[in-house]
């Protein structure tokens, strides 16, 4: 468990760093566009590049947010349960979440494959969009990995009857 935990942490953190770079890049791009167009002309394709960077920064952040328990939940009821029962509830919830995150990742890959075949591209710079869709799918896949870790933890909680791992 310790190794799995560390490994999941390491890869989601690395992934989130891509998102951090994308956020800094999107800010610089928009500012550069403003500074460039006032005296001269806009940076071509700013809107489409912003959209791509936005997808990168958000999708790489989703799994990290789950790792940090950053997706908002309502804990009032379950917190009052004994640890074993909490483990049961969390097992069910993580299993459902994992199933749907997996479906979402799988379907996003299929969507990317379809757009690759049809040749969806941005309007101005003609950048193909399918790699971005694949990257978003990768983000959901990472989310599924974190949820799998959560599921294993929840099952351990049922077995051991405490949160300590």
């Amino acid at each position: 468990m310790g190794i799995l935990d560390k490994f999941v942490r390491m890869i989601t953190w690395r992934t989130a760093q891509i998102g951090q770079a994308a956020l800094a890049a999107v800010m610089l791009l928009i500012v550069a566009n403003i500074f460039s167009r006032i005296p001269w002309k806009p940076v071509p394709g700013t809107v489409e590049l912003t959209e791509i960077l936005g997808a990168v920064l958000l999708t790489t952040g989703v799994a990290y947010t789950q790792l940090m328990k950053g997706h908002i939940f309502v804990g009032v009821l379950v917190e009052k349960f004994p640890p074993r029962l909490q483990g049961v509830v969390d097992t069910i919830v993580s299993a459902i979440s994992l199933f749907f995150a997996g479906l979402l990742a799988k379907e996003t890959i299929a969507f990317g494959a379809k757009m690759a075949q049809r040749g969806w591209a941005t309007a101005d710079l003609l950048i193909p969009i399918y790699p971005v869709i694949y990257l978003v799918a990768f983000g959901f896949l990472m989310l599924a990995v974190v949820l799998l870790k959560d599921l294993i933890k929840a099952i351990m909680m049922i077995i051991k009857g405490s949160e300590a791992l």
Partner: peptide, 9 residues
């Protein structure tokens, strides 16, 4: 929601 599933999920 009351089973502590994150709102987004």
């Amino acid at each position: 929601l009351f089973l502590r599933m994150p709102v987004a999920f």
